[in-house]
Design a protein around this nucleic acid. Structure first.
Length: 409
DNA sequence: ATTCCTCCTTGGAG
DNA sequence: ACTCCAAGGAGGA
């Protein structure tokens, strides 16, 4: 039996119990207060106490000599550092967001230690294609089915089998769509099969990885050696906008799913996925949607919400968004209400001032969406329009006919 | 060319 | 039983 290794880490820097079940990754399973998942072919186990994160390789394949064993431990540690991006100080970021936004300060009190996971881009892509018009528990079941039926088996824990996530080629077969429909994927079956075929066949090797943010802290180590094998096709460094647009070409990928992949799979932390929860938050806490004509989330509103959050939270807005997203989930309602002993008193103190000043701005778009060239939307509140010159340039628009043409062809 | 509306699968919750 | 909702997107009007 392998021994646990430990890493000094506070719950404010990482809380796996919240981070691993807030709808980012759908493969971690908790058994007896220990978390297990296959990452890069390795079955990894985690547990946490207030001062340390404990980790181990759940089932090493060979009898480890002491040398090999310590090498494997180093490998797991490096993997965890990249997966959780532990080089980044989370409490510092929380402090900055709380200082610039009273609502964040209030909501985040009971939700410390939530990190954006630096996940595999392909897994993130497929997982969030599954997420459309869906709920977290069923997404989890669907991802599990993908692993069981198409992913490589790695090992057992407590009688439960663990598989890795399948590679694109494994999901690109001809019978995949009908099989996934039998497995209850609904209309997403075609999206997954088709996207797998495009990524594995139509796109060059390393295409998805090439959309990564080269400045993401998770890449600091491996970025020095820009390997010649598959990255020499592209000379210009990718941008968030370019990555976002490139993903939109794939079937089942719209603006929201694309932003999820950018944020959680490609290291673009300025990406703000606006889903039903974030739209609720934007309306309830940030004055969006007060206009008569703007109760529904249209494209202009989608962009305005993301731009607003980037304005108040800065270039890691998507990271901050995930904290409020988690605090808004029904499955975390008890935690949000401060039922945990740790957060109880702090929340009751902060509960006094419920209305932040920002709420009075009543952000709503006027119906005059005079889209001439790239002026996306006219916004009444001056809060938004200030960022026009702020460098968030909207790149060349990709029309939908282009996307359809790519799919059918 | 852009925007808006409806439909798409499934299953759990109210 | 029935409607609504869940980390939305595609296709047509």
């Amino acid at each position: 039996m392998p021994e646990w290794k430990k890493l000094p880490l506070s719950l404010a820097e990482l809380c796996i119990d919240t981070t691993l079940r807030c709808g980012q990754s759908f493969r971690w399973r908790r058994i007896n207060d220990e978390w297990h998942c296959v990452l890069q072919g390795k079955l990894i186990s985690l547990k946490q106490d207030p001062t340390h994160l404990h980790y181990k390789l759940a089932s090493p394949r060979k009898l480890p000599t002491s040398e090999r064993k310590s090498a494997e431990d180093d490998c797991v540690l490096s993997l965890l550092n990249r997966y959780f991006v532990l080089s980044q100080s989370l409490s510092n970021m929380y402090q900055q967001w709380a200082a610039s936004d009273a609502n964040f300060a209030r909501r985040a009190t009971a939700f410390a230690g939530i990190r954006i996971l630096n996940q595999d881009a392909w897994e993130t892509l497929v997982s969030f294609i599954c997420s459309s018009n869906n709920n977290i528990s069923r997404i989890t079941q669907m991802v599990q089915k993908l692993c069981v039926h198409y992913g490589p088996y790695v090992g057992d824990i407590e009688g439960e089998k663990f598989h890795d996530f399948p590679r694109p080629e494994a999901l690109a077969g001809s019978g995949v769509e009908s099989h996934l429909r039998e497995l209850g994927f609904g209309y997403r079956a075609r999206f997954i099969a088709e996207t797998a075929r495009i990524v594995s066949t139509d796109r060059p090797a390393g295409w998805l990885h090439g959309l990564r943010n080269p400045d993401c802290p998770a890449l600091e180590i491996s970025n020095n050696k820009l390997e010649d094998t598959e990255t020499k096709t592209d000379t210009k460094p990718p941008t968030y906008r370019a990555a976002h647009e490139a993903l939109l070409e794939l079937p089942g990928v719209g603006p929201k799913v694309s932003d999820c992949v950018c944020l959680m799979g490609l290291g673009w932390w300025e990406s703000v996925p606006v889903d039903t929860h974030v739209w609720q938050i934007a309306q309830r806490d940030y004055g969006f949607g007060k206009g008569v004509k703007t109760k529904t989330l249209n494209k202009a509103m989608y962009d305005a919400v993301g731009d607003h959050f980037r304005k108040i939270w800065g270039p890691q807005a998507g990271y901050a968004q995930s904290v409020l997203f988690t605090a808004n989930l029904k499955s975390f309602a008890e935690q949000a209400a401060g039922k945990t002993e740790a957060a109880k008193e702090e929340v009751s103190v902060a509960e006094v001032e419920v209305k932040p000043e920002e709420s009075k701005s009543d952000i709503s778009t006027t119906a005059s969406v005079r889209t001439k060239k790239r002026k996306a939307v006219t916004v009444e509140a001056a809060v938004i329009k200030a960022e026009e010159e702020n460098g968030v340039e909207a790149g060349g628009r990709r029309t939908r006919s282009t996307k359809r043409a790519k799919i059918s062809g």
